[in-house]
């Protein structure tokens, strides 16, 4: 476990995206814990039962399928949340006071609401179909989860826009650019760079939060894992089985976290 606790060991060369050594070590540590728990379960199990590894191997494809569904929901939610969040964030820096205030209120409401409650709301309030378009429950979940994501991205956009020095606005105004041109041609292209790391961070958080959808009855990785445990009815599988799912999330989210860190470091020196 020592390797996990080692603080960031990389140097100051911020241009490399992923630090191969640190990533490999962290991954190795997780795999080690996973295998150790499997071995421990194996040792504790009666001899007549199938080996832990073979049981895990049997269920792995199904759980992985469920995990892929988590990823699908995370990508859909992020796409929707980003589009909505960009508009909401820009509305917060609008010259119109009413719009600015409304956008601020909406942002604060959704940022400070528990995700699970919003998810429940979406599942219960949204109809099964809108006109001819059916609304499957996973799509409702995407809509429900995209609300807090929208709020957080609105804040990222607002912060990014405001982080650009006012001199950029002034000099562009003096050159007779319109407000819209200034925002889209001068401010946003500079601000996007600063928004990318927190945006990626938000995505990693969201991906892990997608397991909430199992509570509202969607067949995701967590649901599959639970189903496998129920089917096997062996308590010794509890730890390794969940760890297998955790490992899948880790392998997906950890590189995102690393990339976020190194992008943050790289962009920090500019301007």
């Amino acid at each position: 476990m020592k390797v996990l606790l080692t603080p960031r060991i990389e140097g100051f060369g911020g241009s490399r995206w992923l630090k191969p050594i640190a990533s490999t070590r962290a991954l190795a540590a997780v795999v080690f814990v996973f295998l150790a728990s499997a071995a421990w379960a194996q040792a504790a199990a009666p001899a007549a039962q199938a080996s832990v590894m073979s049981v895990l191997w049997k269920w792995a494809p199904l759980i992985f399928q469920g995990f892929l569904f988590n990823l699908l929901v995370s990508v859909g939610t992020m796409a929707l949340g980003t589009v909505l969040g960009v508009f909401l964030g820009l509305a917060q820096v609008s010259p119109y006071r009413g719009l600015r205030r409304a956008a601020w209120a909406i942002t604060q409401f959704f940022r400070n609401a528990p995700w699970l409650v919003l998810l429940f709301y979406a599942m219960l309030i949204l109809p099964f179909q809108i006109g001819p378009v059916a609304l499957p429950s996973w799509l409702k979940a995407v809509i429900g989860l995209s609300l807090p994501v929208m709020g957080n991205i609105a804040e990222i956009v607002r912060g990014g826009v405001l982080s650009i020095p006012t001199g950029q606005w002034e000099s562009a105004e003096a050159l007779a650019f319109s407000r819209r041109q200034i925002l889209w041609m001068i401010i946003l292209p500079q601000a996007v760079k600063r928004m990318i790391p927190p945006w990626m961070n938000q995505y990693a958080i969201l991906t892990m939060a997608t397991t909430l959808i199992s509570i509202v009855g969607i067949q995701d990785g967590l649901t599959m894992t639970r189903a496998a445990l129920v089917a096997e009815a062996r308590t010794d599988l509890l730890v390794p089985m969940y760890l297998m799912l955790l490992l899948m999330f880790f392998v997906y989210c950890y590189p995102i976290a690393r990339a976020t860190l190194s992008l943050e470091r790289r962009f920090a020196v500019k301007i």
């Binding site: 020095p165 001199g167 950029q168 002034e170 000099s171 001068i186 500079q190």
Partner: peptide, 8 residues
């Protein structure tokens, strides 16, 4: 301007 304000 004093601070140049070029588009970075």
């Amino acid at each position: 301007f004093q601070q140049y304000n070029l588009f970075a």
